[in-house]
């Protein structure tokens, strides 16, 4: 049947759910093998962090949309966790092929990596639903408050760290629709053009360090 904007948006929610029907909100067997291959097994920390971030997410979601929607927040968070574990497994497989290593202990014990990855997965879920409510014509609904960069504030995540996962996320999740890839591209642009330059951004410290390392480290002469 012809696609109306609502049907197209609903379709993308159905697609998102469809893509995730076989994904679990627990680490898969392959992921557990990666965890076991680490010098320090990150399993417990990952499970604990997902629980903690879940509580924060549901609380902030209820505050933004209304207490009666807490169940909705749980539902969205669960979808986000499914996508988080799915993309993590795909990322590790491609890194294993690229680097010919199986021990990802440093990466998998890096809390910022996990928080950024989960935030990106939740941003995909939230943008899919918000896109739907916008198409429904209720621009004034509370859900539009949940647009990017809402998720950065919820997880107290630096935009700079969120930025790091975007490209690898898109490469690792081939089922992302073009409107979602465009959305993540816009998030990236928004970070580069404004959010990353907030006063407390770690970017300034990194720039300071690179300047201190001196001209020897300058990768390119100004002329280029």
């Amino acid at each position: 049947p012809p696609q109306t904007p609502i049907r197209a948006a609903m379709y993308s929610i159905q697609q998102l759910r469809g893509e995730l029907t076989s994904a679990s909100d627990q680490p898969s067997g392959n992921l557990i093998v990666y965890f076991k291959n680490c010098t320090v097994d990150p399993s417990e920390e990952i499970t604990k962090r997902v629980e903690q971030l879940g509580q924060i997410f549901c609380q902030k979601f209820a505050e933004a949309v209304g207490q009666r929607c807490e169940g909705l927040g749980k539902e969205r968070f669960t979808l986000g966790v499914q996508l988080y574990y799915k993309v993590m497994e795909s990322m590790l497989k491609s890194e294993e092929k690229r680097l010919s290593v199986q021990n990802f202990s440093k990466l998998l014990n890096n809390a910022t990596f996990h928080t950024s990855l989960l935030a990106c997965a939740l941003e995909v879920v939230m943008a899919t639903y918000v896109g739907n409510s916008l198409k429904n014509g209720n621009e004034n609904g509370n859900e539009t408050d949940l647009c990017f960069p809402w998720i950065l504030d919820v997880f107290q995540l630096y935009a700079f760290d969120f930025y790091k996962v975007i490209e690898s996320f898109i490469k690792a999740e081939p089922t992302l629709k073009h409107n979602m890839i465009e959305h993540l591209g816009r998030c990236e642009q928004q970070i580069m053009e404004s959010i990353a330059w907030k006063a407390d951004s770690p970017l300034f410290e990194l720039l300071r360090q690179s300047r201190e390392e001196g001209p020897g480290e300058q990768a390119e002469p100004p002329a280029t």
């Binding site: 690229r98 990802f104 490209e167 890839i181 465009e182 993540l184």
Partner: peptide
């Protein structure tokens, strides 16, 4: 994908971005 400008080099990936290489 025409919808996104990929900027990472062949030798760059998520491990390098999080200083885990």
């Amino acid at each position: 994908s025409p919808d996104y400008h990929f900027g990472l080099e062949e030798h760059e990936g998520i491990s390098e971005l999080f200083d885990c290489d």
